[in-house]
Amino acid sequence: MPEPDNAAAFARIALPHLDAAYNLARWLVRDPVLAEDVVQDAMLRGLTYMHAFRGDNPKGWLLRIVRTTAYDRLSERKRAAEVPLDTGPAAALPDPADTPEAAVADGQRRAALDRALAALPDELREVIVLRELEEMPYREIARITEVPLGTVMSRLWRARLALRGAAQ
């Protein structure tokens, strides 16, 4: 049972990074409802392991817990042989029949990028989300994803190669 003081300290350091936590969870599990569950679970785990927090870089610490929790939940889901709730980015495409052309082009560009990100293997998608959307330094990404710095650089490189088509 966590101490109340820990809960206060945890709220103070974790809640400012809630958007980052949700964003990472959302890109890793690609399901808004499951992402909320993951963040709730991660917050609970973070509170439980509060004593292990050394005080530097709370964002990196929280994201590391979120990442672990997300992969745990994904593998649970796989084991339970649930059908993934992935309706695909095509569902978000506007209907060309009643939308101005510019909006269609815009939507298609976004959908193409979304599809390209979704198609990345997990280990490439997580580095690109952490670097490009969360703007984390290599060293932090290495700590969060638990791989050496060189691996972060080569994964980033491969992720960017894979995305370049969608970016044009």
Binding site: L15, D19, Y22, R26, P32, A167
Partner: peptide, 16 residues
């Protein structure tokens, strides 16, 4: 492109 078109999903208000 990523900054413009890949959404940085904000936590839902209900979760916050």
């Amino acid at each position: 492109r990523l900054h413009a078109d890949a959404p940085r999903h904000a936590a839902p208000a209900s979760l916050r």
